[in-house]
Computed example of a mutant assay.
Amino acid sequence: MLIHKIDDQVSLKLFNMDDAEEFFNLIISSKEYLKKWLSWLNSIKEVKDTVETIKSRLGEIEETGGYPKSVLILYEGEIAGTIGFNHLNKTNRIGVIGYWLGEEFQGKGIMTRAFKAFINYGFKELRLNRIEVRVAVENKKSRALPERLGFTEEGIVRQAEWLYDHYVDHIIYGLLAEEWT
């Protein structure tokens, strides 16, 4: 079990099959809250669905040459959410980062700490040149993170994602390795 301790409260943890039930419970308990911004939630109906998700995430490690693309976020030992690179472009050394926290873990600064650590990981370990965040225009909480941490707003992609019954536009934020201090 690989754990990267950020501070006394927050850690990043490699996905493990033993996490399937707790991860499932977090998703289910926050499902209605998260559905406003995440399009995949209806595919999670049973613990076996999170088992498949974890298998997929563990399989991604081979793709990066031994580095995880995504990890769990722990808060005081509990699974609070996840953060990861939804897409890695090895040729151009670009990572597109995605993240979410369960509803009960909002407002504690957890994601800010995890986000900073994951940016460091992307630039230092994965040797990325650029990290992007794509977030729904109306998702003010998720937008606040890249805005606070020095990302540049680069544009809007219209109708970028289908969310159950409507399209949402995405703002693209970018940060270059040379800009990260």
Rank of each mutant, 00 (worst) to 15 (best):
L2E: 13
H4K: 10
H4R: 08
I6M: 14
D8L: 08
S11F: 01
S11E: 12
D18Q: 10
A20N: 09
E21G: 06
N25R: 15
N25D: 10
L26H: 01
L26K: 00
I28K: 14
K31Q: 02
K35I: 02
W37T: 08
L38E: 12
S39G: 13
N42S: 14
N42E: 15
N42I: 04
N42G: 14
S43Y: 13
K45Y: 07
V47E: 07
T50M: 02
K55T: 08
K55H: 09
I61G: 02
G65Q: 02
G65D: 01
Y67C: 02
L72Y: 02
Y75A: 04
E78H: 11
I83Q: 10
F85W: 01
K90P: 07
I94C: 10
V96E: 13
V96F: 12
L101K: 10
L101A: 09
G102F: 11
G102H: 08
F105S: 04
I110S: 00
T112E: 09
A117G: 01
I119Q: 06
N120C: 06
N120F: 05
I131K: 01
V137E: 11
V137A: 07
K141G: 11
S142R: 04
A144E: 10
A144K: 08
L145F: 08
P146W: 05
E147S: 09
R148W: 07
G155R: 11
G155T: 05
V157I: 12
A160M: 04
W162K: 13
D165W: 15
V168R: 15
D169E: 11
H170A: 04
Y173G: 00
L176G: 01
L176K: 02
A177M: 10
E178T: 10
E179P: 11
